[in-house]
Design a protein around this nucleic acid. Structure first.
Length: 669
RNA sequence: GCCUGGGUAGCUCAGUCGGUAGAGCAACGCACUCGUAAUGCGUAGGUCAGGAGUUCGAUUCUCCUCCCAGGCUCCA
């Protein structure tokens, strides 16, 4: 038989004995590659190392320490998790066990309605290690549908996955689980354990081991609230113990910058239990940050031609009947209060109907458009108890809400300038890395004609495409009244957050029967653009706090400078310096010298104050300060007060980022 | 709303196999007067989340409620 020739990723070809597997190829290339190999790709398809290679195949070996390799490790570890659970809970049913970012999960239904507790994770981990110690092979085989159903006769979830494909529908889930339109693939590990799976897998369980089970959770079967809730176990797996440890360290680092933790440490806000879930109070330091955020926002909006309005927090029910919110979102609204002999009043969950009423307060001419109304509007939403989360998901929140009313002809220009404005303002707050998402008409739950949706969606799409940013689609993710563009931003540790949204709305103007008089002297209906830039002040606050790990840029810092005297007889000079800085418009404080200097510096450092000025005998004599800048290795002594003030002005005016605070230098000798 | 785990001093936590609690930091007082991330001593601080039940006795056991965390679902 002739040798088999395969092509490698570097473009070279390799001659192999007929029947050589992917693992054999790896061994032929080198023992280290063979050792690191977990799977392979053949002509672009991921396969097991046991796959026999054929003439002309393009083959690459997948090693453990790559994104593809980790997927294989995680998927295989998920199998072992399932095997362990089935061993420990005879009669358990297993559902799906996919790879997710940085890990995997597996869903189970335990016999007699049993549930996992945290303690079970240890038992399961131990069982998994036993299975890995047994070094069981992952043996792939292909079956017909009938055989598949037979094989999983006592596993209803597996049967449902197979049947879904057999019935020709809902194939996506099933495909990744190993059921395809033509066959069913499985992996056998040991007598009594076969899992439905597409693969590929590592050759044997002995290749696994650098994993940790993280937590248990409930999860609805197929993500459907109306179906039964399964027991889910989350885990993570890596190519080495070191990689696993690094991952766990990253999680700890992220925890340290959690805004809820920082909020308490920096005395910014709290959630008094007396108020109820999801209701925050902002303390003076947090209130100052909010004020600064809001002030700058107001300034930018004023410059961009927005007009400022104010509207009440409650309204008669008819407003939300007209808007349609009561039809769609009554569950998410606080229940009504009954006043004035039966009239129902609602706390407002949205500002838009109020702004519409402002437009409708008198007849409008086309000459007035576009009209851009802006309000920091506080709204209340009855979020389900399980979803409330820090400042990012609350029940009382303030939207930086703008509604732009314009003619159809102005619509495209307005969208473009709005999106440009939004990105510019976000950048000023220090967010840099963006992509856009276009959310289209939701299934079932939407108002308006197909034509209107199509036009609105296309208009938004062309606006987004003009931005020179990546655009991803979010099919069905729009609001009931219109599609939206959302701006997604990456933070300092690479997480993405949905920031601003821009929604195009043909519906509410109709529902409220809005109109203006056009140049043709007849009545026309305006277009409405909904736009939140921060989203909510609370959520944006939280994202900034985590982005900066609490070390806000000087222009946003609640306290910018703290002046410390070396001894208490420097206090007169401390007061002079503080007064000078306060007079120059900076937020400054001081602390008397009744504790050692190191202790006072430490306290200021823990509050992440950008500048600590230390003054002693030399400074009193020379009119200077010692500048201890946040993030710098060593302080700079002998800086003149004038040059410090000047540098601080420059930094604040530039809204400089914390890492670029290279502004204060020692005064020339 | 559902699943799992939790709530002890302002914060971080220990403890009580059922006999009403302790540390460090913070706060307050006194002393120390110091040149860049923790000075010393002392004082005070708790309905052990709230309510009900079992018990001679509950912070501890049981139930309910509230609140928090991680998920699921949801997010105008």
């Amino acid at each position: 038989m002739a040798a088999v020739s395969v092509r490698l990723p570097d473009g070279t070809t390799k001659e192999l004995e007929p029947g050589t597997t992917a693992l054999g190829l790896a061994q032929a290339i080198g023992p280290r590659l063979a050792k690191a190999a977990v799977a392979a790709t053949v002509d672009g398809h991921p396969v097991d190392l046991a796959t026999e290679l054929a003439e002309g195949n393009e083959v690459s070996v997948v090693t453990a320490a790559t994104p593809e390799g980790r997927e294989v490790l995680r998927h295989s570890t998920a199998h072992v998790l399932a095997q362990a659970v089935l061993r420990l809970w005879p009669g358990a049913h297993f559902a799906i066990g996919p790879v997710i970012e940085d890990g995997f999960y597996y869903d189970f239904e335990l016999p007699n309605g049993e549930r996992f507790s945290d303690d079970d994770l240890e038992r399961i981990t131990a069982e998994m290690r036993t299975i890995m110690g047994e070094d069981q092979p992952f043996v792939r085989s292909e079956h017909t549908f009938a055989e598949g159903l037979e094989l999983f006769a006592d596993q209803p979830f597996k049967r449902e996955i197979i049947e879904a494909v057999g019935a020709g529908g809902e194939g996506v889930d099933a495909l990744s689980e190993g059921a395809s339109p033509t066959s069913v693939s499985t992996y056998w590990n040991a007598p009594g354990f076969t899992d439905l799976c597409r693969g590929p897998h590592v050759p044997s369980t002995g290749r696994l081991g650098h994993f940790a089970l993280m937590r248990v959770a409930g999860a609805y079967w197929r993500g459907d609230e109306k179906r039964q809730q399964l027991q889910r176990i989350y885990g993570t797996a890596w190519e080495s113990d070191q990689a696993l440890a690094e991952h766990l360290t990253r999680l700890e680092e992220a925890e340290k910058r959690d805004h809820r933790k920082l909020g308490a440490e920096l005395d910014l806000f709290s959630f008094p239990e007396e108020l109820g879930s999801g209701l925050a109070v902002f303390h003076p330091r947090g209130g100052t940050i909010r004020r600064l955020m809001e002030d700058y926002s107001r300034q930018r909006h004023a410059e961009a031609g927005y007009e400022f309005v104010n509207t009440p927090h409650i309204t008669k029910s008819n407003l939300f009947e007209t808007s349609g919110h009561l039809d769609w979102f009554a569950d998410g609204m606080y229940p009504p209060m009954e006043l004035d002999g039966g009239q129902e009043y609602y706390l407002k969950p949205m500002n838009c109907p109020f702004h519409i009423l402002i437009i409708k307060s008198r007849q409008r001419s086309y000459r007035e458009f576009p009209i851009r109304l802006f309000e920091f509007g506080t709204v209340y939403r009855y979020e389900k108890s399980g979803v409330v989360h820090g400042l990012t998901r609350v029940r009382g929140m303030t939207q930086d809400d703008a509604h732009i009313f314009c003619t159809r002809e102005q619509m495209a220009d307005e969208l473009h300038s709005t999106l440009t404005f939004v990105l510019s303002v976000l950048r000023d707050y220090g967010l840099e890395d963006f992509y856009l998402e276009l959310s289209t008409r939701p299934d079932g739950k939407a108002v308006g004609s197909d034509e209107e949706w199509a036009e609105a969606t296309e208009t938004l799409r062309s606006t987004a495409l003009a931005m020179d940013l990546d655009l991803v689609m979010d099919e069905g993710g729009g609001a009931f009244y219109g599609p939206k563009i959302s701006v997604q931003a990456k933070d300092a540790i690479g997480r993405t957050h949905q920031m601003s949204t821009i929604q195009l709305d043909f519906q509410l103007p109709q529902r409220f029967d809005m109109e203006y008089i056009g140049a043709d002297n007849s009545r026309h209906r305006p277009i409405m653009i909904h736009r939140a830039l921060f989203g909510t002040v609370e959520r944006f606050f939280a994202i900034l706090l985590e982005h900066y790990a609490g070390a806000l840029p000087t222009w946003l810092a609640p306290e910018q400078v703290r002046v410390l005297g070396v001894r208490d007889d420097h206090q007169v000079y401390v007061d002079q310096v503080a007064e000078r800085l306060g007079g120059a418009g900076f937020r400054v404080s001081m602390e008397p010298a009744d504790e050692p200097l190191g202790a006072r510096i430490r306290r200021a450092k823990l509050l992440k104050i950008p500048y600590i000025l230390v003054v002693g005998d030399d400074d009193v004599a020379a009119g200077t300060v010692g500048v201890n800048r946040r993030g710098s290795e060593r302080p700079v002594r002998g800086v003149s007060v004038d040059s410090f003030v000047e540098a601080l002005h420059a930094e604040v005016d530039a809204r400089a980022l914390p890492e670029s605070q290279d502004t204060v230098e020692a005064a020339p000798a």
